[in-house]
Design a protein around this nucleic acid. Structure first.
Lengths: 160, 160
DNA sequence: GCTTTACCTCAAGTTGAGTTGAGGTTTTAT
DNA sequence: ATAAAACCTCAACTCAACTTGAGGTAAAGC
């Protein structure tokens, strides 16, 4: 219940990040602060939660832009409620399920693939990552990599 | 068995990447080529395997530098054998297991954590990512993020 | 009271992973 | 034989995510 107010330095230390990173996140609209009389930043404890989420998400490869979009489901005007965070959490979990599924698929394919010695261009999932792996079961809630544009199929001409 | 020789354009098209990316990877020492009489790049089919591995690895957040190091276990002078690739594959799988474990832990913690409404700084794994999540079961073979340096523990002073 | 520490802004620099463009050569296709 | 497509080099640009530095103000400790 400690209705604590935080300074940049405290937040930075507590979260293990630089003060400059907090400036940066604020500038990017990921976190918010108000100022005291001396123009110094002050934070609600909520900010720690946000930063924790940012760090956790980054670790799994989510960009700041995507995180920001996820945060936009949180209210700007009032402090997010438990329900607000739960909604975000739900989306997050779908994404994580997708990522996990992808990694598992990749791992399992590696076993039979990377070391198999085959040079079968048409069969090997490693040589054909788009079909077999990239598009595999991820419910892209936050991630939406929108990759693979070039997908021409054309074998070279020479052969022995 | 097709002992095919590849040009940049063919490789690029086949792999769905730009020619400039191949130049770049070569410059970074990730792939190799020789030149024909007209100074144009020529590739062994092996390069497709390398690029596939690069792409797969990048997708799970491995940096080019780490990939390069992994490739250094491959022979420079001769074409990698099945065994060479198998060794690399083994390391890769350990890393993937680590990443999967991390993601699962994160997902499971999210359920009880991000939306729980607790503000318990001392208990919540989200607020204390270093201990609970970051260091959790990953045998860092390729990843070795070497993060968390700043880990001071200091609560702010004010309270209500 | 004064010194040290923390904070402020704003501009510029850094790193990773490429991309773009200019200016020129080779290959391929007709 | 000639035009189009593919290739070459090298330098510069881009973008994300920060970090560093200069020059100055505010707050804390003794």
């Amino acid at each position: 219940m400690a209705e604590t107010i935080w300074s940049v330095g405290k937040v930075a230390k507590r979260c293990g990040i630089n003060v400059s990173t907090l400036h940066f996140y604020e500038q990017q609209g990921l976190i918010h602060s108000w100022r005291n009389e001396g123009n110094q930043r002050r934070y609600k404890p909520e900010v720690l939660r946000r930063i924790s989420v940012i760090k956790a998400a980054q670790r799994v490869g989510v960009s700041l832009e995507e995180i920001k979009q996820a945060f936009e489901s949180l209210p700007n005007n009032r402090t997010p409620t438990v329900e607000d965070w739960q909604q975000l959490s739900k989306n997050w979990q779908q994404m994580l399920d997708g990522r996990i599924a992808y990694l598992q698929k990749l791992r399992d394919n590696l076993a039979g693939c990377i070391g198999c010695g085959c040079l079968s261009m048409t069969n090997c999932p490693l040589y054909n990552p788009d079909d077999k792996l990239a598009k595999s079961g991820s419910g892209p809630v936050l991630l939406d990599q929108a990759e693979q544009k070039a997908r021409a199929q054309q074998e070279p001409s020479a052969s022995s």
